[in-house]
């Protein structure tokens, strides 16, 4: 039995060395940061608005662009306000229920999804607002029809096409037309299954 134990430990060490040598080079992560680590401009924008209570700050790193993200709740709705590394406002995302999309837009979205997938199920929907700081600020406080911001919808769906089931992220414009479809690489679930 000593031999079994020795073999087991040797295998562990060898495999650990092997995976370290061939570790993935893709680098993408999001982590919590303290308020005093966030650019003053971003903090100023948040303070400029009405008091929202607790805000969680995150820093997002990837190959394309790094960003600070403030996550908060307003009237029980989840908001995510994204800033660049200098603290300039990029966009505001609001998580919402599909039923809250205007009927003609929702019909267009459903039509587009039916054309692209054999079957689909909407998992998550975010409405994305981008534009000038004045309009976005106005949107957070008292939205007005005269505000000029670009509206997009970002959906996470479970989709089936050509017999294959995957998670997808689909972006629509304000009219419900598809702008982009990308496959989401599912995270490894082995440690929850075995």
């Amino acid at each position: 039995m000593k031999l079994v134990k020795r073999t087991f430990l040797t295998t562990c060490i060898c495999l650990l060395c092997y995976t370290q040598a061939f570790a993935q080079t893709k680098f993408e992560r999001e982590y919590r940061v303290k308020t005093n680590e966030v650019p003053a401009r971003a903090i100023a924008f948040i303070n400029w608005q009405t008091s929202y209570g607790k805000i969680r700050w995150y820093y997002e790193e990837n190959f394309e662009a790094n960003a600070y993200e403030g996550k908060l709740k307003i009237n029980k709705q989840k908001y995510s306000i994204e800033f660049d590394t200098l603290g300039n406002l990029q966009d505001i995302e609001v998580e919402l229920n599909v039923k809250r999309i205007d009927s003609p837009v929702l019909d267009e979205i459903k039509q587009s999804l039916s054309e692209k997938f054999d079957r689909y199920k909407i998992i998550r929907l975010q409405q994305q607002f981008s534009g000038n700081i004045k309009s976005l600020s106005s949107f957070l406080q008292t939205p007005s029809p005269t505000d000029s911001y670009v509206v997009r919808y970002e959906m996470t769906i479970k989709g089936k096409k050509n017999g294959s089931r995957e998670l997808y992220e689909v972006t629509f414009n304000s009219a419900g037309e598809v702008i982009n479809v990308s496959t989401i690489v599912s995270r490894n679930t082995d440690n929850l299954e075995y």
């Binding site: 680098f27 992560r29 999001e30 982590y31 919590r32 995150y58 995270r187 440690n191 929850l192 299954e193």
Partner: peptide, 20 residues
Amino acid sequence: AASDFALNGATIDPREFYIK
């Protein structure tokens, strides 16, 4: 039933601790 969540951030990213 099994669940895991990151100790820092919304998802478990490389070089991060988590609770299972």
